[in-house]
Nucleic acid binder design. Structure first.
Length: 115
DNA sequence: CGACTGACGCCGA
DNA sequence: CTCGGCGCCAGTC
């Protein structure tokens, strides 16, 4: 069976913990996954993630709150739709991080370390 | 081997 | 708020 690099597994695992109605930035996910400074790797991992995993990729955006896709692109539209469906307000292709930022509990951290 | 490219982030002008 | 520049790293050419 194919050997999936650990960093990817860690990243997918972390993204999967983001609760509906909340969002996280690429850098935040990288940090929580034990890969500080590897924000770009998070983007890469999500692009490679099997759709069968049903990861909440739409809850991951840039640190500024901007969606990672160009406004109007099919990806941006789908991401916006999914977020609003969860109650996250998206205006001009961006979200108010101050209001919707996910704040992982100590339990969340432990859950990831345990993995 | 070097140059370029991303679903990024931060700092300074 | 916008731009430019640099750091970051795995792939690709």
């Amino acid at each position: 069976m194919s050997t999936i690099a650990q960093p990817h597994r860690q990243i997918w695992h972390t993204v999967n913990l983001i609760p509906a109605g909340k969002v996280a930035s690429y850098g935040m996910v990288a940090d929580l996954a034990g890969l500080p400074g590897r924000a770009r790797l998070v983007g890469k991992s999500l692009s490679l993630a099997p759709t069968a995993l049903l990861l909440p990729w739409h809850r991951v955006l840039r640190a500024t709150g901007q969606l990672a896709f160009p406004p109007g692109s099919s990806n941006a539209l789908e991401q916006t739709g999914r977020l609003q469906q969860e109650g996250v307000v998206v205006v001009n292709n961006r979200v108010k991080m101050q209001q919707f930022r996910w704040q992982p509990t100590p339990a969340d951290i432990l859950f990831m370390l345990d993995y």
